[in-house]
Amino acid sequence: MSARPEALRAAARADLARLRARYPAQFRTDWPGRARLAALLAVLIGLAAFGYWRLDFSMARILHGLGRLGTFAVLMLPPSPEGQFWTFLHALGETLGIAFLGTLTAAVFAFPVAFLAARNVVPNPFARFAVRRGLDVMRSVDVLIWALIWINVVGLGPFAGALAIACSDFGALGKLFSEAIETCDKRAGEGVVASGGSRLHRIRFGLIPGVLPVLASQVLYFFESNTRSATIIGIVGAGGIGQYLTELIRVLELQQVAFLVLMILVTVAAIDWVSTRLRRAIIGPAAR
């Protein structure tokens, strides 16, 4: 920093009393605001302390565990597939298949349902409320729980995983789609109605062209995040690379684990890159 700001500060310091008199609002202490902040911090810290005690955190355990993690990190080097590269690659393909099919199925089913949950399509608040809460129930059940349920129906394997992703994403996508439909510009729809179009015409020519790019971009984003969830769905036996990952972690084959994690990272990065490109192409540079 140059000398000039210092000089400015010194001048302000020397003149402090007059500055105080001239700008009382800037110098007044906001006691109620501070009290509220202090209370909020006290609650946050109190809860954290309670959690620390209740969940038996202990520094000794953490330090001990960190030491072991260090050992694991050394054991992970160098990452190597140890002859199982093709098995892993096949499992990775399965993972991508699960994510793709799950997202696609969810999108196909969520698309019509979302219109039923949108205020500007279904004016009846009760019908809308029912559809929305239904979507919320689907959404609030985690993918792994859905996977456990579907395993009971179609047996172990990737199919159950795809169904699980489809179910939980159906809820999430339905909600997002309906919000996109609600914020859609209504002038196009009004134009269609004014020139004699029916309600269906209004949806087909007034709403769908406006929302489709947004929906497509959301679906791509979900595909991206589903490639991540699909990697863990194998933990409960629903196919994909997660199955190998779990087994190898449990038997401490850490070099293979490191290799698998690297494969996942590379795949996810590649999918991210492709889908960001596609999203930009679909809705312009505003997509991020």
Partner: peptide, 20 residues
């Protein structure tokens, strides 16, 4: 990018079972 369950799997071996 690494899913939290994968972290949990590794940590369970390092730190032992439990909510921590």
């Amino acid at each position: 990018t690494v899913p939290e369950v994968v972290f949990a799997l590794i940590f369970v071996i390092a730190f032992g079972l439990g909510p921590m």
